[in-house]
Simulated scan of single mutants.
Amino acid sequence: MKRSIALGIAGFVLAGAAVGYAQFPKTPPTPPLPTAQAARLTAWDFRLTAIDGAPMPLSQYRGKVVLLVNTASFCGFKKQFAGLQQLQDTYAKRGFVLIGVPSGSFKDQEYGSNKEIADHCNTTGIRFPMAEKAPVVGPGALPIYRWAAAKVGGDNTPRWNFHKYLIGRDGRRVTPFGTMTDPSDPKLHEAIEAALKQRA
């Protein structure tokens, strides 16, 4: 009986995720930066704002490998938070940084204020850098997300929370990983390892 209930709950969660993906096409598309402009720029040319309101120029991470992840505190995939922190703990000393971008772009599954998000991170042990809450898709998407959309091309923009962009040491190489790629996925670890071995 308990097993049946557990399977039913798991099926409901997966079905909810599937519905979210199916509904994403209704979200306004993210206009990429013009190709020529995107080619001239690197990730280090962009600025975010930290969750505490401080400037967060990405130039401070020049020469590092960056994993950019749009997060959401109430998403069914929030279990990935722990795995993301593990990635930061594992690779930080080798020149890796994980940046979370809280967003309500998908079903508004994030707290309303940056303070609430910061408090939630503090109580759940999240220590990797967090930007302020911002849209990651649609016309109002952060410029770096519009840049990434132009760099990777195709249908590789975020379709749900916990989408991942791996940015190389040169600030130009961008590799997308979808929501379903768990932080423990060997393919993600292999890509991080490869990026860490490359020169800036």
Rank of each mutant, 00 (worst) to 15 (best):
K2C: 00
S4Y: 09
A6E: 06
A6N: 10
L7C: 01
L7W: 01
L7Y: 09
G8Y: 00
G8D: 07
G11D: 08
A15W: 12
V19Q: 05
V19D: 04
A22V: 01
Q23F: 00
Q23S: 10
F24R: 07
K26A: 11
T27N: 14
P28C: 04
P29G: 00
P29F: 04
P31T: 01
P32T: 06
L33D: 05
Q37H: 05
Q37R: 13
A39Y: 05
R40H: 08
L41S: 03
T42W: 05
W44L: 08
D45H: 11
R47M: 01
T49H: 13
P55W: 11
Q60R: 15
Y61G: 04
Y61H: 11
Y61M: 04
R62E: 15
G63R: 09
G63H: 10
L67A: 07
V69D: 09
A72G: 05
S73V: 08
G76T: 12
G76W: 00
G76Q: 13
K78R: 14
K79I: 11
Q80Y: 13
F81H: 07
A82Y: 03
G83N: 14
Q85S: 02
Q86R: 11
Q86P: 08
T90R: 15
Y91W: 11
A92D: 13
A92R: 15
K93C: 01
R94T: 04
F96M: 03
V97I: 14
I99T: 09
P102V: 04
S103V: 00
G104Y: 00
G104V: 00
K107Y: 06
D108S: 14
E110K: 01
G112V: 06
S113P: 01
S113V: 06
E116I: 04
C121F: 02
N122W: 03
N122P: 01
N122C: 03
T123P: 01
T124K: 07
G125Q: 10
G125A: 05
F128G: 09
F128L: 03
P129S: 08
M130S: 14
A131S: 15
A134W: 03
P135I: 00
P135S: 04
P135D: 01
V137S: 08
G138H: 03
P139N: 11
P139K: 10
Y145W: 05
A150M: 11
A150Y: 07
G154C: 06
G154P: 10
G154S: 11
D155P: 08
N156F: 10
T157R: 12
P158I: 03
N161R: 04
N161C: 12
F162Q: 02
K164R: 04
G168V: 09
R169L: 10
R169H: 14
G171Q: 11
R172P: 01
R172N: 12
R172Y: 06
T175W: 09
F177V: 14
T179I: 07
M180V: 14
P183E: 13
D185T: 06
K187G: 12
K187E: 15
E190N: 15
E190K: 15
A191V: 04
I192R: 06
R199Q: 11
R199H: 13
R199G: 12
